[in-house]
């Protein structure tokens, strides 16, 4: 039995005839940062959605603290409160103020009383420099601010693991920094993070483990220094060469 926070064993996922994950094995140790990199369509987002139980897997198992959460019929709602997720397009609720976005889940699913949840939301907003936005609506915020609110919303339920699905991919370049700063702070606070990302420089700096995905397989995994400077597999080499040529590393 491994001591990993999350373990994937032979995870397979297909959408119809399109097989997206073809036997993923990985261990995510508590308090570490794991980056998933790889070309578009390699299965990074699907893998995160599977861990969050948003997509049922076809084969294999997903263990959270050694318990298989991927069994059919396993109650997903309590699991999702332990594994938070942040999306590429923020997915804030447009009809709710920032405060209501953040307090919705604590109030409805954890039964936290409204004023306590609000105090906590304000505290988190202050911590990430958004204290003045508590009553704003998502439409009134910049992309970077929206994504920071989305991260705070996920943090408000005090998850043990946070999944970040290409959270800077739809941001203007000058807004990427403020969101990455939040992620750095989360790492410092000891949060277990799994991120799918195209920000290679960031992945290299922040990760404890880097996994390179290629058509649903992990073709390479290891320390960032090792994966980025001396990739073993030919496909990982080609992928990284393309990234370097595009000036992204």
């Amino acid at each position: 039995m491994s001591t990993a926070k999350i373990s994937l064993r032979g995870v397979h996922k297909a959408f119809g005839a399109n097989s997206v994950l073809n036997g993923i094995d990985m261990d995510i140790a508590e308090g570490t940062v794991v980056s998933l990199i790889g070309p578009s369509g390699s299965g990074k987002s699907t893998l995160l959605r599977c861990i969050n139980l948003l997509e049922p897997i076809d084969d294999g198992e997903i263990l959270l603290d050694g318990i298989d959460i991927s069994l059919p019929g396993f109650d997903a709602n309590p699991v999702r409160r332990r594994i938070g997720m942040v999306f590429q397009n923020f997915n804030l609720f447009p009809h709710m103020s920032v405060e209501d976005n953040i307090t919705l889940s604590p109030v409805r699913t954890l039964g936290v009383n409204k004023s306590l949840a609000r105090a906590k939301a304000v505290e988190l907003l202050e911590r990430f420099g958004l204290a003045d936005k508590v009553n704003a609506f998502p439409d009134q915020l910049s992309g970077g601010q929206q994504q920071r609110v989305a991260i705070i919303r996920a943090l408000a339920i005090e998850p043990e693991v946070l999944l970040l699905d290409e959270i800077t991919s739809s941001l203007d370049p000058e807004l990427v920094g403020e969101v990455l700063d939040v992620v750095r702070e989360l790492k410092t606070s000891g949060m277990t993070l799994v991120l799918a990302t195209h920000e290679m420089g960031f992945a290299r700096d922040i990760s404890d483990l880097v996994c390179v995905l290629y058509s649903g397989h992990i073709i390479e995994q290891g320390l960032p220094s090792q994966v980025f400077s001396a990739p073993q597999s030919e496909r990982a080499q080609q992928f990284l060469e393309r990234i370097i040529r595009a000036g992204r590393l």
Partner: peptide, 13 residues
């Protein structure tokens, strides 16, 4: 659909 995904990922039924 992404609105549902966000809500479910927060643990809402």
């Amino acid at each position: 659909e992404s609105q549902r995904a966000a809500a479910r990922s927060l643990g809402l039924s």
